[in-house]
Structure formats: C-alpha cells, structure tokens
Computed example of a mutant assay.
Amino acid sequence: MFLKDIAQKIVNLMMEVIDYRNINIMDCDGFIIASGEPNRISTYHKGADDVIKSGKGIEIYPQNVNNFPGSKQGVNLPINIEGKVIGVVGIYGHPDEVRMVARLVKNSVELALEQYLISEQVNLVKDLSNQMIRKLLFNSVSETEEEILCLSKVARINLELKRCAVVIKLDNYDDDGIYESVNAMGEIEKLLSTNNFITNKDFFGIINHYFIIFKSIADDKRCEYMNNILFTLEDNRPYKIKIGLGSSYNDIYGYKKSFNEAVDIISISKGKPLDINNFDTQAKYLLQKIQPDASEPFIKKLYISILNENGKVPEWFYKTLDALFENNLRLNETAIALFVHKNTLVYRLKKIEQLTGLNINNFYHATLLYCLYTYINNIESDI
C-alpha cells in the first residue's frame, strides 16, 4: 500500500510546520501506520475506523474519548485520493482549537500523496518504456511482438505512430565512468523535458551511454530540432555529445532500423549532428556499410603504401583527407580549413596521387580514398 510507504515522512514534515502537535495517519482498517508517538504505531484507532466506514470526519472531544478506544481528543478526517478514501489523518488537540489546522493538514497530505502517485506513475512509465525499448532494439521483434504490444498498452504508447530514433551519445564517458554517465544522463533528461524536446507523443530510454528518443517529427523540422538540442545541452553544460537521427518508420519493426542508422552515423560524426535524411550523410552511411572482408584486401594495400618510415600515417596525409571530405572536395574551402595556400593543397594532392595512384578528381578514385580515410579512422583513432 503506497500510503504506508511515505506516511511517516509526511507526519515528520507536517509536525514541524504545526509546532510538533501530534499527527496520526491511519489505514483503511483503522490502524495507525504513522505517528509522532511511535509507541502508538500498529495500534487500533476507533475514531479512524468510524471515519473509514462513514467517509466523514469525526471530532473527538475530551468528554467523549472513552467512546473511541485507542483514540485521543482531536479531529480525524478522511484522506481522499481519486474519489476514494484511502486512510485517515488525525490531529491531536481540542477540536475547537485544531479544526482549521486539521483541514490544512488533510489538504497537504492529499496533495503530497497525489504528487507521490504522479511520480510513481512517471517512474513506472519510464521503466516500461526502457523495457520496451530493449525488446524493440535487442530482441527478435517477431518473437516478442505480443510482449512489446502489451508493454506499450500499459505505458499508453502508440507504436504505430510514425517516429524516428534520436540518439544522443555521451562521448566523454567510458565504462569506468558509469556513475558519472548516469548522473549526466539524468541532467540531460531534465534539460530535454524542461525545454519541450520530449512531448507526450514521444517515448525515451537510457541504454548505456545512449539517450534514445523515439520522436514524431516532421521532415522539415529535423535539422532545427537536432541543432536546438545541441545548443541547449552545450549551453547549460559542456557535454561532449554526438547526435544522430535515423529514418522515420510507422511500424513496430522500424524502431530497430532507425536506431541502428542513428548509431552508425554517430560513429562517423565529427561532433556535428547528423541526419540520415541528408544526402551527404546517406552516402557516408552507405560507404560505411561496405563489409571489411570485401574491402580490406584493396584498402590495406593502399594503407601500407602511405605509411612513413615509422610505420605511421603521415599527419599531413590524414588531415588533408579529413578536410577534403568535410568540405565536399572543394579546394578553396579545404585550403582555408587547413590554413594553407591553395597551391600547397594542390601539391599535397599530387603527393597523395604519387603514394596511392588515386586522383581525387576521379569519382571512383575519390570513393576509394574515402574508404581509406575511414580505414585509417578505425585503426588509428589516436591520430
């Protein structure tokens, strides 16, 4: 019974407010479950029992105390939650003196219990959402579909609504910083909820270092939404995060697809939010999907050809490719990003062609250079 869980906390807090005049809270059987007089807990209170049965408050005057075993003088009022009497609150003292105080305490107790119920319901929905997300993402949906649909009904989530996965990855925490990561995720949840980035049409969960929102959003609002999240989180605290948006789907099998897309594009992010609906992102995503066992025989040869005498990729080589692909092979923008003269960049491109045999002006050669670039990223992430 939830009343028993917090009754003593309420008594302790309320007694401080009313100058430590004793308060009792009784259950539906008329037994005291919380009191400023601990020796009375678990004892029968006739006045409370009568309140439960009648649904009305009872005032016990000094001359009538003997008619109410286990009771003392005071005012006893029903605790009403959602139209039901779930218990009784009693205030010690002459009824003429404590009548108004008793009403204030009753209202305060009911408000506290309502807030507690809301909090518990929110926590329940969060737990159900987390369970459902895990089953959607990490189980065979065809095998657990009935269970997923059951969870969605209890949590009041319509899984047929068109949604995409918004994945926020904390990038500055590893497995050793799990507690700091959990705290940061809690702060991120508050910021996103407070700033209305999560609505009642969405549901979310926290899995490892990923904060996942399954969101219903119009295509033309996706970019603005991502950038606003990034601005809000970095403005409140310098989180090192990456954000990815997967495609929107409107069936139970689409959630896993959208999540996997978002996670994959996060892995190629340079810190800027990426949207799978963007053509550049789609191209990078598809190139990333090339199976290593198919590409490695070719790309590894290229990789070996560029290593210097120390067996390392020259820094200028990696930074040149990085700037080229970040600026869509536009030479002027690339030179500016590298802080070099355009002629210096042209010289570097000729050097790259000498080392690899690949000309950046040839579409297919540029594709192979991008594969080489991602290969370097994967095996030499400390560059």
Score class of each variant (00 low, 15 high):
K84F: 01
I352F: 02
T367Y: 13
K46C: 07
I79Q: 02
P78T: 02
E261I: 06
E380H: 14
S258W: 07
N362P: 09
L136I: 02
L245D: 11
F68L: 01
W316L: 11
I217R: 06
T194G: 03
E146L: 07
F259K: 05
L324R: 04
F298A: 09
N343K: 12
N76A: 07
T281S: 08
Q121S: 08
L191N: 07
S181T: 09
K126Q: 14
C223F: 12
S129N: 15
D382V: 09
K301S: 12
H45V: 02
H45T: 00
K190A: 07
I213T: 07
T144R: 06
F203I: 05
K272F: 05
K289F: 04
I25S: 00
D251P: 00
L307C: 03
N76I: 00
K190R: 12
V105W: 00
L233S: 00
V154W: 05
E309S: 11
D175H: 08
L338G: 08
K289M: 15
S108G: 06
L233F: 01
N328A: 13
D96W: 02
K270V: 03
I306W: 04
G311N: 05
I217F: 02
I352L: 03
V51N: 05
R163V: 04
N228M: 09
H45P: 00
I6P: 09
S305A: 13
S129R: 11
Q354H: 09
D96T: 11
N107R: 10
N158K: 09
G30S: 08
A323F: 07
K272M: 08
N327W: 06
C150N: 14
I168H: 03
K221M: 14
S129C: 15
I217M: 05
V154T: 15
M132F: 10
E296L: 09
